[in-house]
Design a protein around this nucleic acid. Structure first.
Length: 571
RNA sequence: GGGCCUGUAGCUCAAUUGGUUAGAGCAGAGCGCUCAUAACGCUUUGGUUGGGGGUUCAAGUCCCUCCGGGCCUACCA
């Protein structure tokens, strides 16, 4: 058994995330983490909130709160929702933690010592009314190219032409609308990624098993134009990690903070340190996951993220890690996802279009969402959420195939065998055939899950569930009960063992339902099956069980229509 | 503008990386079963693989071209 370090891309702090955010990193990483744990691997599963940057400051201002208070509150909100979705992080940290402050400053110091930091003086737009420098896209004005009046400082959305903020006619702050803008000189630090281009390319080229979505984005940035560009890693903001060189002040950088994309990935490491702190362990506990000179050599590190995060995880963060000259663990595998759309369009926070994580839990149990989202996870291309597809998928897979199987088996056993595992009869050829079939299917399921092909994994799991119905239909214990009750008992015993078997295998996708299924049998033994035959004989004949409640109530047409209307948005 | 991804049954997706007759689930049709959440099982209809051209003994897969959908393009994160 190995050791697997798993990180989910960090959800940004400025509000509750929608299902599209959930499906691209947090949920798939959780399914994989649960699978890896169930298989006996030692797992450290890390996530955190990404708290810095202009949008966090603006969101706090809109809420009328201090940024620190706002972030603390939203962290708790996101943590509670994550718990509601049964996301099994070993630690859910905060990028604003003192651990991350120190580690980010440490990396900056190491990079400076290695000659990989350049101090650059540049001109930026300052808004007096807002009291802040404005990022390019927070400046609006008329496009000099097409005359569109709401062009942004980085690009005109109308004609797609790339712009410089100073190109705009009648520029104004997108925050306040103020036109009282001026260009000021300000000093910033740049990470000299260009110096690391060859090392990064060599590293990327060695990753022949990565998804093409991941490597193609990385190579594009390595080769585009003049090649990999140096990148500013500081900002003129109040809320963030103060620019320091290790523990020392950085002359000329007073009052500045690190750019959110510099400190956010470092939080993967810092959150692991927070985990060690929170669990009363010393530094060695987290360093053995992250330092190859301190025991992390045998760790497999897997990252999960949406495709928009790929450049930062394939280039910027590795540049930081490599450039430090220290023995930090680099990522071994990057699983990236496309986007989930909502009923043919995008999820929209501003228009209230689509389903947000808190709303999802308000209307249906987390297992429903977990199952459908993973069975339809956008692995190969963008996928689409519709209420019709969601209703059909949940009702068919969870209620009809799995839930009804559990129901028909346990209720039959209750009415004919006194709610006990029958101890009569022997398994015969039918059971042997299903054991052989399930042995093949289990192997396929494990192979898909190890490769993080979650859609295929879900499909195989569904096939495993369906095999139970096929067996039961052919064995027909309700008919045999009248002529050969002992044999009927063996069939029911086998079927009850199937329920327990399904509970164990399904746990990565639908942990709550799995728990309910195991609880029917005093389910202490939930070990992953090494041998299907043994696993299907594990219930003690003659022992009592409890008939569970309906596992999955169906989504009615009325409910579906109500949801569809409620989440359609304002636009 | 540039780069990348993508187009396969009514719908959602596969196809061992160029190799037999392109497969699953859902939806539809028919039959069976009565333990079960009107659930389950069996059978079955349905494809000029976006259009056109090319390479090859062989193309869904490789090349060219056209058409459609999407993403990224470095100061939103």
């Amino acid at each position: 058994m190995g050791r697997i370090l798993i990180t989910s891309a960090l959800p940004y702090i400025n509000g509750i995330k929608h299902l599209g955010n959930l499906v691209g990193s947090q949920l798939p990483s959780d399914v994989y983490a649960r699978f890896a744990r169930a298989r006996g691997h030692e797992v450290l599963f890390i996530c955190a909130t990404d708290e810095h940057g202009t949008p966090a400051e603006l969101a706090a201002a809109k809420a009328g709160e201090a940024v620190a208070d706002y972030c603390a509150r939203m962290w708790q909100v996101q943590k509670d929702i994550a718990d509601g979705f049964r996301l099994s992080f070993d630690h859910f940290g905060r990028s604003s933690s003192s651990r991350n402050h120190h580690l980010t400053q440490h990396f900056a110091g190491r990079l400076a010592d290695a000659g990989l930091i350049e101090e650059v003086s540049e001109k930026q737009v300052y808004s007096k009314a807002d009291g802040r420098f404005l990022p390019d896209r927070y400046i609006e004005g008329t496009c000099p190219n097409c005359g569109y009046e709401r062009a942004r400082g980085d690009q005109c959305e109308n004609c797609t032409k790339q712009l410089d903020p100073t190109d705009l006619i009648n520029p104004r702050s997108a925050i306040s609308g103020s036109t009282d803008l001026e260009v000021r000189e300000t000093g910033h630090l740049y990470l000299r990624q260009s110096q690391l281009r060859d090392r990064l390319r060599e590293w990327i080229d060695s990753k022949t098993d990565w998804p093409i979505l991941t490597t193609s984005i990385a190579k594009k940035w390595l080769d585009d134009g003049d090649g990999l560009q140096d990148r500013g890693i500081t900002r003129d903001l109040d809320w963030g990690i103060p620019v320091k060189k290790g523990d020392a002040d950085w002359p000329g950088m007073e009052g500045k903070v690190f750019y959110v994309w510099f400190d956010a990935p470092i939080e993967y490491i810092a959150a692991s340190a927070e985990w060690a702190d929170a669990t009363g362990q010393g530094d060695a506990a987290w360093e053995r996951w992250w330092r190859t000179d301190k025991g992390a050599d045998d760790v497999r590190y897997v990252q999960f993220m949406g495709k928009d995060n790929v450049p930062f995880h394939t280039l910027s963060f590795p540049a930081t890690v490599l450039g430090s000259g220290e023995d930090w663990k680099l990522v071994d595998y990057i699983k990236s996802f496309n986007y989930l759309n909502y009923d043919g369009g995008k999820f929209s926070t501003s228009e209230g279009r689509g389903v947000f994580m808190d709303q999802a839990l308000d209307i249906l149990p987390s297992d429903y969402w977990r199952w459908w989202l993973m069975a339809n996870v956008p692995e190969s291309s963008d996928s689409n959420f519709t209420w019709e597809a969601f209703q059909a998928g949940v009702n068919k897979d969870l209620a009809d195939v799995l839930g009804n199987f559990v129901s028909r088996v346990t209720k039959f056993a209750r009415s004919r065998f006194e709610e006990k595992v029958p101890d009569t009869g022997e398994y015969g050829p039918d059971e042997q055939a299903l054991i052989e079939d399930l042995t093949r299917r289990l192997k396929a399921y494990e192979t898909h899950m190890e490769a993080i092909d979650l859609r295929k994994g879900a499909q195989e799991l569904r096939g495993i569930w369906a095999a139970g119905n096929e067996y039961l239909q052919a064995a027909a214990p309700w008919a045999l009960f009248k002529t050969d009750p002992d044999r009927a008992g063996a069939i029911v015993r086998f079927s009850l063992n199937l329920v327990r078997f399904y509970a164990v295998l399904s746990q990565p996708f639908i942990p709550d339902a799995s728990r309910a299924m195991l609880d029917a049998f005093d389910g202490e033994d939930c070990a992953w099956p090494e041998d299907v035959s043994a696993a299907l004989s594990s219930l003690t004949p003659g022992s009592a069980f409890t008939t569970p409640e309906v596992l999955f109530a169906k989504i009615t047409d009325d409910a579906r229509e109500e949801f569809s209307t409620r989440f359609a948005g304002t636009a």
